[in-house]
Simulated scan of single mutants.
Amino acid sequence: MESTPKILLIYTGGTIGMVRDYPSGTLRAFDFKNLLQQIPELRQLECDIHSVAFANPLDSSNMDLQHWRQLARLIAEHYGRFDGFVVLHGSDTMSYTASALSFMLEDLAKPVILTGSQLPIGDLRTDAKENLITTIQLAALQDKDGPVIREVCLYFEYKLYRGNRTLKVNTEHFEAFASPNYPELAVSGVHLNVHRDRLWKSQRKGGLKVHTELENRIGVLKLFPGMHPDWVCPVLENQQLRGLVLETFGAGNAPTAAWLLEALEAAVKRGMHIVNVTQCAGGSVLMGRYETSSGLRDIPLIDGRDITTEAALAKLMYLLGAGVAPRSFKTIFETSLRGELTEN
């Protein structure tokens, strides 16, 4: 007889961990120690649920590298005892955390699924209960080879996504997240439909490797019509900046002004790694397709293809922290490591 899957719930903070005190209207922390008493529906799931919480739960806007390291270490510490992990997280930076964890947790053979909610768990119209229940159910899915899901994911409003493909698209609707360039991994309706052919399948074999060295001397530069050299050039000339995500127009296009191309080229020659990412929510960079991107290709910038800004930042932090050699950095970045890029 197969053993009951064991799931570890990790509460970092966020709306999903709050309940409203209706007489006063204030929010207070949810008691995860009595989870089954407060959400009896969880008893119908065939899994053993345990929970742990950050000592000081935080609003996700305060999420930082130290918290990502704490999460990765918690998962590593309990990795041998649990079959799946559910991370409860505020929605504002959830896609950033999901992207970062996907790179920090190499050779992951178990599910790590982030979820949250738009409304507190005790509200009448809350989305928290469904998100929590279904995420735990997905994390507990097993077949004869072990866990069905073996990657970092994000679940929100009936859909499971690859975490490093997501971005937050709405502050008011329950459908707060989207994955424009990769289809959902599972859909929860009358039936729970998992698209197994879309799940990430690591080509490596071996135990979990946790990477906690991250380099945050990086930045984002969003192009816009009429930008002035007086503020753009100092960014590109910053000697401490090791990486940059350049958000360009359309399919990776930029102004052909000589001052901009010269500043970008000088930064790359000096050793800055610059990734060309489209400002559009969906679609891909196609450097060289138009004259306005040929100069960027010739510099050359790193081709971000269809990676999100969130994943590009996390990947820069990870590769720079890992000390990847400059001569191979561009090639490795342009290679899909955790399913964050569509392969050509």
Rank of each mutant, 00 (worst) to 15 (best):
S3G: 01
P5K: 14
K6W: 02
I7F: 03
L9V: 07
L9W: 01
T12H: 05
G14V: 09
T15R: 11
T15M: 10
V19F: 03
T26K: 14
L27G: 07
A29Y: 07
F32L: 11
Q37T: 10
Q37Y: 08
Q38G: 01
Q44Y: 09
A53Y: 04
A53K: 12
A55F: 03
N56R: 14
P57V: 12
S61I: 04
S61D: 01
N62F: 12
N62H: 15
H78R: 10
V87Q: 01
H89Q: 15
G90C: 07
G90A: 07
M94K: 12
S95R: 04
T97Q: 02
A100E: 06
S102V: 03
F103S: 00
M104K: 04
M104D: 03
M104H: 03
D107V: 01
A109F: 00
P111C: 13
G116C: 07
S117Q: 06
D123S: 10
D123N: 12
D123G: 01
L132W: 05
T135M: 13
I136T: 09
Q137A: 15
L138I: 14
L141H: 03
Q142C: 01
Q142E: 09
G146S: 12
P147T: 06
V152M: 11
C153V: 08
C153S: 14
Y155V: 04
F156K: 04
E157G: 00
Y158E: 13
K159P: 00
Y161M: 11
R165W: 07
L167P: 00
L167Q: 14
K168E: 08
N170G: 04
E172W: 13
H173Y: 11
E175P: 00
F177M: 09
P180D: 08
E184S: 08
L185Y: 03
G189R: 06
H191A: 13
R196P: 01
W200P: 02
K201Q: 14
S202F: 00
Q203Y: 00
R204S: 11
K205I: 05
K205C: 04
G206D: 06
K209P: 00
V210T: 15
H211V: 11
I218M: 05
F224I: 02
F224Y: 15
G226H: 08
H228C: 04
P229C: 08
V232G: 02
L236A: 02
Q239T: 15
Q239L: 15
Q239C: 08
G243Q: 08
T248D: 04
N253D: 12
P255L: 13
A257S: 13
A257N: 10
W259C: 02
A263L: 08
L264C: 05
A267S: 12
K269Y: 05
R270A: 07
M272C: 13
V275M: 04
A281Q: 12
G288M: 08
G288D: 11
T292C: 11
T292E: 07
R297C: 02
E310F: 05
L313W: 01
L313Q: 10
K315W: 05
L319V: 05
G323L: 08
R327E: 15
S328N: 11
F329P: 03
T331H: 09
T331N: 09
F333L: 03
L337M: 10
R338P: 00
G339Q: 12
E340S: 09
T342A: 10
E343K: 06
E343N: 07
E343M: 11
N344V: 10
